[in-house]
Amino acid sequence: MHLEYQVYEADFVNAGSASSSIKKTLKQLNINPAIIKRVVVALYEAEVNAIAHAYGGTITADIDANKINIKVVDKGPGIPDIDWAMQEGNSTASPEVRDMGFGAGMGLPNIQKNVDKLNVQSTVGVGTSVEMEVNFK
């Protein structure tokens, strides 16, 4: 199954709608609720990142019998130092993002805790790609 969603810069009203849709799909597929929670927490963090830090982007999810693979590809500005961004507490979030309850520098580290595979690639001026995979068993 292949799913695709667009997310838009600073569109906080709809932040989480892709994650919510994927959560409902996984529920319909009778995936273990504890695994669904790991998938959607990681995805939601990445979705909020694309809306809060980037100029929007695309979320694609590929689901088979054994796993879900999700790619969140945004349109920039890119992360200059991924190792820095992966450390808890480091954040470049705007006051608006902090008002929404985010921006504590816990997004990428929390994604890492919840997925089985994570690959973050970023080019300054081009964008960031966060690819994550969670096994169903």
């Binding site: 959607v40 909020v48 008002d99 929404m100």
Partner: peptide, 15 residues
């Protein structure tokens, strides 16, 4: 005390 749509969304994601 955070009162906006993301409060509900976040809780939805976390069951």
């Amino acid at each position: 005390g955070l009162c906006n749509l993301q409060t509900i969304r976040t809780c939805e994601m976390g069951n």
